[in-house]
Design a protein around this nucleic acid. Structure first.
Lengths: 335, 335
DNA sequence: CTGAAAGCGCTTACAG
DNA sequence: CTGAAAGCGCTTACAG
């Protein structure tokens, strides 16, 4: 592997000059600069990011933690993160935490050793163990859909309460009175807030809150199936279900169909996220769109500002958008 | 940030001894070893992977390229890669190529500069531009569902032809005679092979091959919608469709329903991949399961063997498994 | 505009 | 069992 020194010899200049020339420093005479570039090109030189990192104490590297990249929300968000990072010459370390404290600790250690310049955490619990570990890192951290007041922790969140309220209101306006909430049992802040929006819409419409209509899945289709099962077994099942996320809704949908009922004829269903697949569900899912890519982008832009020396607390809330498709309709006449 | 030297001072030993002690070298007296560990612990020492990488000329880093991590196949495969890598102390650099030659070149450059120890490429075209770039890297490369003979390129692939043949045969055994192939227009090798398996099954059953029944999408739901549209517009549409992948099938499914037809009553549908969502489709999708996580694992295991000095060519084929669910049934009586 | 020198934080022969 | 020294491949004051 050819190094800066090899090029220096070939060009009859010092290492310093090569280093400068390669980064187009105006300090280097234009001809030598070009000559060095040419030699570098011909010799297949590839600057060592690791050596540079050691010298500059910056790695131009961002650590990204997701619960699991197999979760479509995480994947679609990471897309935005990757794109924005790439545009600025940053590379991504990707790690899955599986919401497991042991792994979370390992990820933090790993990112510390790798000397990442910053961290973005997507859709994570950020619980009592995790938070201090993160805060203990001496680099800026941006949470996506998580919040945790701390010196070096910033975040971008969707307007959960508002969007959920709107989604629930949509169901109410269609005439639904028995609306269930299918949440995520892991206790994400997003879940609490979305539930809050649901309750608020109920209250505003003077609809009674029925604890029986609140069930919990695991944020994945399987949990949606299970939770829906409980709702269907109720003496008086709901006519509409608002789901914590699309991924759960997909499971709920399946379970409803499996029991011979139809969406939206018998039960209306609303999701959250607007995953790529939401519009291809059968029927296409009414949901709250999160600008996932954009949120990913925002997270890295915040990180970059912080790394550039910005001394601010970034707590950005982006609006959700209700996308009405075909999984919602007025309740069946018999109700 | 505390360094090895700081610890050396605190412990009254040399840097070398600290370095050895921290890595539990038997060369260090047990008491000093423990003492150093204690001091490291108390001072919050975190070894610098970048300094170590520079010294050892190994980064314990794997570059992972996917077309886009928003593709569920890629995401689920990367899960296996991440897990296996993590178990061996390797970190992952993740990059999306978007099947764009310009980005592909950038990714290669970036990985070269980062001095990744190896590369795994998932579901990529590995075309005429991309291949030589990859081969030009002086590190081992493992393709997942791609093949490209070269010194440093290895691969793990699903048995495309066999699995596709089996899937098509399943349709034939149900009584279908007009079976369409919905492929991926990007020209992946996987597409060619899956198409090959389809043709072979047709031939074996003495069914005529009809070019009109071959349409192409883009590997995503939208492309599935478009391609299905063409099939439905045919004077005599097929009674069954075998799709290149589940993600496309999801779109095809939607399009079929949108036109008022039903799956499997009017048209049977078979996918490929067995994505997490396949079983939650409406109806649950008959498909070919790819052991995605396992394939990801295999890829890093091959890489590790190669990095450990193995001098072999790894070309591993794993079997697919036909999973019969509810999207396939005999053709409607009228046919 | 250019170079010599020191330093980034580790590892690893080599010598004792 | 331990240490001094060199080196990994860059960057960056400092001096000219």
């Amino acid at each position: 592997m050819v190094s800066i020194r090899d090029i220096a010899r070939l060009a009859n200049v010092s290492d310093s000059t090569v280093s400068r020339a390669l980064r187009d420093s105006p300090l280097v005479k234009i001809e030598t600069r070009e000559k060095i570039h040419r030699i570098a090109e011909e010799s297949g030189y590839r600057a060592s990011a690791v050596a540079r990192s050691l010298a500059t104490r910056r790695t131009r590297t961002i650590g990204v933690v997701v619960t699991t990249i197999a979760d479509p929300f995480a994947a679609e968000t990471v897309c935005g993160i990757e794109e924005a990072a790439g545009e600025h010459g940053y590379s991504l370390f990707l790690a899955n935490s599986h919401a497991d404290p042991y792994r979370e600790a390992k990820v933090v250690t790993s990112f510390e050793e790798r000397r990442v310049d910053g961290v973005v955490v997507t859709s994570s619990r950020v619980g009592t163990l995790w938070a201090p570990l993160l805060a203990g890192m001496r680099v800026p951290i941006v949470l996506i859909n998580g919040q945790h007041p701390s010196d070096n922790i910033h975040w971008v969140v969707i307007a959960n309460a508002q969007a959920s309220r709107e989604a629930t209101r949509h169901l109410i306006q269609l005439g639904h009175q028995r609306i269930a909430y299918l949440g995520d049992r892991h206790g994400y802040q997003s879940d609490t807030e979305r539930f809050g929006g649901y309750r608020k819409a109920l209250d505003e419409a003077d609809l009674p809150f029925e604890p029986d209509l609140v069930v919990y899945g695991d944020g994945k289709p399987d949990g949606g199936v299970r939770a829906m099962e409980i709702l269907l077994a109720l003496p008086k099942p709901p006519t509409a279900v608002f789901c914590f996320n699309d991924y759960s809704a997909v499971g709920a949908l399946r379970r409803i169909h499996a029991s011979g009922l139809r969406v939206p004829d018998d039960i209306s269903l609303v999701g959250f996220d607007d995953l790529n697949i939401a519009q291809y569900a059968e029927p296409p899912l009414t949901t709250v769109r999160q600008p996932k890519q954009h949120m990913g982008r925002l997270a890295v832009e915040i990180l970059l500002k912080l790394l550039a020396g910005a001394d601010a607390e970034y707590c950005i809330t982006v609006p959700g958008e209700l996308i009405v498709r075909e999984s919602t309709a007025p309740p069946p006449a018999s109700h």
